[in-house]
């Protein structure tokens, strides 16, 4: 690990649309705290070009080499976390401190689970 941490309140892994996602980020003994920021984003993975949507971003101005911040985001109503054979949509928090980064995935869905797109007949 690179000394970066994202702790979500109650270790919650899945969220409903519109729900609050909160927690703390902290880092220790970094070489640089330049451009420290936390992003709420979704991105696609699979066969083809990656798509990405940055929903909200918080810049930590004046951050120290070891530091800690609380965060709170109100999640949007979509898009939902889903996976098929050709494409997955993943929600994540991404913490960047200097050149180091950490991405923590979570699920956003009305059922609380990732939506699976099964191919009929397979």
């Amino acid at each position: 690990m690179n000394g970066l941490h994202i702790d979500i309140t109650d270790h919650q892994q899945s969220f409903l649309p519109g729900q609050i996602l909160s927690g703390t980020v902290h880092w220790d003994n970094q070489r640089s705290a330049k451009d420290a920021s936390l992003r709420l984003l979704w991105y696609t993975e699979g066969k083809g070009t990656e798509d990405i949507g940055i929903v909200e971003s918080v810049e930590y101005e004046g951050a120290q080499l070891s530091d800690r911040y609380a965060f709170e985001f109100t999640l949007p109503i979509g898009p939902y976390t889903f996976s098929g054979r050709l494409i997955s949509l993943v929600w994540a928090l991404e913490l960047q401190v200097g050149k180091e980064w950490l991405r923590h995935e979570f699920v956003l869905s009305p059922t609380g689970n990732e939506i699976l797109l099964e191919t009929s007949g397979k």
Binding site: G46, K47, R85, I87
Partner: peptide
């Protein structure tokens, strides 16, 4: 799932 496929674009 696409995100688990070892041959995904990323």
């Amino acid at each position: 799932r696409a995100k688990d496929n070892p041959f995904r674009s990323q």
